[in-house]
Design a protein around this nucleic acid. Structure first.
Length: 454
RNA sequence: GUGGAUGUAGCUCAGCUGGUUAGAGCGCUGGAUUGUGGUUCCAGAGGUCGUGGGUUCGAGUCCCAUCCUCCACCCCA
């Protein structure tokens, strides 16, 4: 057999122990905060039926779904004509019935509908699991990545939005990141489309405005025209595109400028949320950004986006309210709101800004040198006592050269090395070397326990 | 999905307009130091130059294809 190079699929990664402790630090922080606000844990399968996933993320999303080939003779049900016509679109749906989950929100909606009779609404859940997208990988974009979602479903109270803002604020405070929490309301964008007499161009308007940060006013206006909005209507947007100022100033301006019913409702909701959060003395700034759009088309009310202030990494957390996510699964009029932390991007930002605590790898406090069978026996007895005290400790597994064993302890960042040879065993002491200072002295087991206790 | 850049030792990279046995630093192994790591000194191992074709007397270097990674667009976390 030819030797093969070990590789992993494009866009996937191995996570070494050094990386895992940092990733877990992020996951643990997020999990702890969600639990503090009484969100309940949920997991769903990695794969869903394609009927659950298809058509939920737009045409683009369907293309990015990883499909799972049916087991067994998957060609059995294929009709000859399609096969001969090489119609891969048509064939795909016959030979594949399952796909890997694309996000956590749609499986959550499926779960809610499927278990509606067992769920006590309003239902608050958090979910930390990987998702898969057949995207072309780049920095900060992978084919397998984790999402950390929190949603509240079965209530349209804006208190949920406020709570989610607090959660985002808590998480990023704990992680030591300065962020800006941006909020907006899709109804304002709807109102805007109505205002310029192009209600059917709502999605085009949203997608163009979403690029404002990236490409600037003029290019956005160009794009709007390209998307079929006439020049005079685009010009009418000017005061909106130029809107700056403090949160309440923007709110007041829009109240007067945008008289449309839907728009007014959106502004009212923003005002209410700001009223609540303003009284909370949050650590991070909450900014009302009427130009915030977000592409996902199931959002209907509030939308959130969090950006790191000290590093340009795109959004590291986002979310919004959806009024009818469960509708496609047959459960109407259930409103929900949720957020999703982008763990991978948060990781990259924290790595860049060096915000991870140092010494994250869980190393033993003491390692015993292995001198041979008899000595190891004694070391094991000592280790047993240390383990009972909850002291992280280990013995080098092989009777290797001292140098090798010391190097291992040093590289692993172990604080102390314990030496117990014939001499120490007969005198009932342990020679303990401090790996930082290089000092070493003999001590009893009790003294060692005391030394390692703190 | 469209366009562009890249790929040389475990890691980070050098290698001029094609020319003999492909280099460095770090890391690794051994020794100086047989019960002492981190510093120092000495020695050593490790590469079918991403893969497959082609041009050439000769290819790490030029051409084509393919894969990976990166960058922009699309979209997104």
């Amino acid at each position: 057999m030819a030797k093969q190079k070990p590789t992993i699929p494009k866009g996937t990664r191995d996570f070494s122990p050094e990386v895992m402790v940092k990733r877990n630090y992020i996951f643990d922080t997020i999990r702890e905060v969600f639990q503090r606000y009484a969100y309940q844990p949920l997991e769903t399968p990695s794969m869903e039926n394609l009927s659950t996933l298809l058509g939920k993320y737009g045409e683009e999303g369907d293309k990015l779904l990883f499909r799972i080939l049916n087991s067994g003779d998957y060609l059995a049900k294929v009709n000859e004509e399609d096969l001969r016509a090489r119609d891969s679109q048509k064939l795909a749906s016959v030979i594949s019935e399952k796909g890997l989950r694309y996000d956590l929100t749609v499986p959550f909606a499926r779960f809610v509908v499927q278990h509606r009779n067992e769920i006590n609404f309003p239902f608050k859940r958090y979910q930390i699991q990987p998702v898969w997208r057949a995207d072309k990988p780049q920095r900060g974009r992978y084919r397998e990545f984790y999402q950390c979602d929190g949603d509240v479903i079965g209530t349209d109270s804006l208190l949920n939005e406020v709570e989610l803002i607090q959660i985002m604020d808590d998480v990023f405070m704990k992680l030591g990141l300065n962020v800006s929490i941006k909020i907006n309301n899709r109804k304002i964008l709807k109102g805007l489309a109505n205002y310029i007499q192009n209600p059917e161009k709502f999605m085009d308007l949203t997608m163009a405005i979403d690029k404002l940060d990236k490409i600037g006013h003029e290019k956005v206006k160009e794009e709007l025209k390209q998307r079929g909005i006439n020049t005079s209507a685009v010009e009418e947007l000017d005061p909106f595109l130029n809107l700056e100022g403090k949160n309440y100033e923007k709110v007041e301006y829009l109240v007067n400028w945008l008289s449309d019913d839907e728009g007014s409702k959106g502004i009212g909701e923003i005002r209410e949320i700001l009223d609540y959060t303003g009284a909370l003395e949050l650590n991070n700034e909450v900014e009302f950004d009427p130009k915030l759009a977000r592409g996902l088309d199931y959002y209907t009310g509030t939308i959130f986006e969090v950006k790191a202030l000290d590093e340009d990494m795109g959004s590291i957390c986002g979310g919004g309210r959806y009024d009818d996510l469960t509708g496609v699964f047959g459960l109407k009029d259930v409103s929900g709101v949720g957020i999703s932390f982008g763990a991978e991007r948060i990781y990259d930002v924290m790595e860049k800004l060096r915000r991870f605590p140092s010494k994250m790898l869980p190393a033993a406090k003491i390692m015993f040198v292995n001198f041979g069978r008899e000595e190891a026996k004694h070391a094991l007895k000592v280790l047993r006592e240390l383990h009972e005290e909850g002291i992280k400790s280990e013995i080098y597994p092989d009777t290797a050269k001292m140098k090798k064993q010391m190097t291992y302890a040093n590289n692993k960042g172990i604080e102390y090395v314990g030496l117990m040879g014939e001499d120490e065993i007969s005198k009932q002491v342990i020679t303990v070397k401090n790996m930082t200072t290089g000092e070493q002295k003999k001590m009893t087991l009790e003294e060692l326990k005391e030394l390692l206790a703190e």
